[in-house]
Design a protein around this nucleic acid. Structure first.
Lengths: 203, 203
DNA sequence: GGATGATGTTGGCGTTGACAACTCTGTTGT
DNA sequence: ACAACAGAGTTGTCAACGCCAACATCATCC
């Protein structure tokens, strides 16, 4: 269903860009990326089919904007989840894993948009930055873990990547419908636990 | 570029279904799923735009067929990689992880097709079966690991899922361009190694 | 050797993304 | 005050696509 108000249609919408993004994300959440059409959201917002072009050069530009926004919100969610430094490493990692997977299943289609075509030639720099920013959270967690002796020393980026892949994999598989939604929380907890064991310094 | 031969165009192609699938996969590999169009591959194969309809009810049906085929080849690759029971668990897991990630980066767009919409209502049963069949390999590996005492006991499916998510996550991230292609082999090896530690029975 | 069903073909409908040319409107400079 | 301007939206058009219906061709089996 559309979202346009019956308000007196002014010629200038006033905040079309934001309105389009909002509606686009609704469509994404309701019907998936396949159903998203520029003309469709233009209709829903109550504007002509060519109006979006003023704000997004092409469809991909809109998707990129959605992705960037998504990474921003993901970063916030991850930062919020991990809590302060005082908590034990195990707990912090479990909390962050839960937050990540939670975001993923809560915004399945958006996650797809976020993770497809980042390597596309000529991606917007701000999108890449937003992605990097989101991945700062797990990175910081690994740094803290190394400092507290909970994580094997070594190249932080590498350790963090390897570790976070486990969580991302869970998210990705859940997203694809391969994981029983009901069993998911338990599996996430299990994975986090085993991750801690795998990351522990030897000896 | 098209692929049609200049052979004497017979009215009946003879093996159109296979030809379409082959060409579709080429397009997938060369240009990604976004560029794949039924009319396009029909052209390339040298057949009218409506001919594919005789073999695939709609575009999704063709994608499903591609996915099913992909799962089949993935299963073969995984089965081949792990080697016989005699090899140490660590080696077998590392080999399989490498094979999985190798397949993923070697068929990035195909992997996307394989893992999107499996939970779509009304998916073909044979596609689901093919997917399950591919995931039989890691499952069997976990079973063997439990038998040899390398893997913590417990619900096989659950342990295997949690473990394989780590590998799938790597594949997914590499696929999305988040992992340096050059550093990838090392990261895969690292991850496999830490996975073994995490899976090891306690005590 | 003619009916029949599988396989391709032509033609067409509705939708989409992209583009060009035009119009409306708020601002700015004089 | 008001003309010029630039930003924002509009209409109109095009090529491509997915899907569908109606028709054509061919191979096979009584």
């Amino acid at each position: 269903m559309g979202t346009q108000t019956d308000a007196p249609r002014r010629y200038h919408h006033g905040n079309l860009r934001e309105a389009l993004l909002r509606r686009a994300e609704e469509v994404l959440a309701e019907s998936g990326a396949g159903e998203l059409s520029l003309r469709g959201i233009a209709r829903d917002v109550g504007v002509s089919h060519a109006a979006p072009r003023r704000h997004f050069a092409d469809k991909q530009a809109l998707l990129d904007a959605l992705a960037e926004d998504g990474f921003g919100r993901l970063a916030v969610a991850l930062d919020a989840s991990v809590g302060d430094d005082g908590r034990p490493f195990v707990e912090r990692l479990a909390a962050m894993a839960e937050a990540y997977v939670g975001f993923a299943v809560g915004h399945a289609a958006l996650l797809d948009v976020m993770f497809t075509g980042k390597h596309r030639p000529g991606v917007d720099a701000s999108l890449l930055a937003a992605g990097a920013r989101a991945f700062q959270a797990p990175l910081a967690l690994v740094v803290a873990g190394q400092a507290s002796g909970d994580v094997v020393p070594g190249d932080v980026e590498r350790v963090a990547t390897s570790a976070w892949a486990a969580i991302h994999g869970l998210a990705s598989m859940a997203n694809a419908g391969l994981l029983d939604a009901e069993a998911l929380p338990g599996i996430v907890a299990d994975t986090a636990e085993r991750l801690v064991l795998g990351l522990r310094p030897r000896g």
